Computed example of a mutant assay.
Amino acid sequence: MGRRKVGSTPVELTELGFGASTIGNLYRVTPAADAAAAVDAAWEAGLRYLDTAPHYGLGLSERRLGAALRDRPRDEYVVSSKVGRLLVPNEAPRGVDSEGFVVRDDLRRQWDFSRDGVLRSIEDTLQRTGLDRLDIVYLHDPDDHWRQAADEAMPALAELRDQGMIGAIGAGMNQSAMLARFLRETAADVVMLAGRYTLLDQSALDDVLPAAAELGKSVVAAGVFNSGLLSRDRPTQGMKYDYQEASPALVTRALAIAEVCAAHGTTLPAAAVAFPYSHPEVINVTLGMRTAEQVGRNVELYRQHIPEGLWDDLRAQGFIRSDVPAANEPGRGARCL
Rank of each mutant, 00 (worst) to 15 (best):
A38F: 11
R335W: 13
A263M: 06
T252R: 08
V11S: 09
L160P: 01
P307D: 00
I320H: 10
N226K: 00
R161L: 00
R234T: 11
F225C: 06
L131Y: 06
Y243G: 01
N284F: 12
V282T: 00
L58M: 04
A270E: 08
E44R: 12
G331R: 05
D189I: 03
N90F: 03
A213H: 13
L209D: 08
C336I: 11
D106I: 08
G59H: 06
R94N: 11
T252Q: 04
H55V: 04
E259Q: 12
P307A: 00
A187H: 15
N174C: 05
P330Y: 12
V103Q: 04
A32Y: 01
S21V: 01
R147F: 09
G59I: 12
V208C: 01
R63H: 00
R315V: 06
G333C: 04
G333W: 14
T266A: 13
V324F: 09
R196M: 07
A292P: 12
R161H: 01
W146Q: 02
Y77H: 13
A221R: 04
K5A: 14
A33W: 02
V260E: 11
G117V: 07
E76C: 07
T286S: 06
L193E: 01
P10V: 03
N298V: 02
D51I: 11
S176H: 13
A334E: 15
G265Y: 02
A37S: 10
R3I: 12
R315I: 03
E152C: 04
S21I: 00
W111I: 15
A53F: 00
V260P: 00
E91M: 14
P330C: 12
G288M: 11
N298W: 09
W146C: 08
D162R: 11
Q304W: 03
G46M: 01
Y302C: 08
N90L: 06
E99H: 15
F182V: 14
P210S: 09
E293K: 07
I320N: 12
A327Q: 02
R253F: 04
D144C: 02
D112W: 01
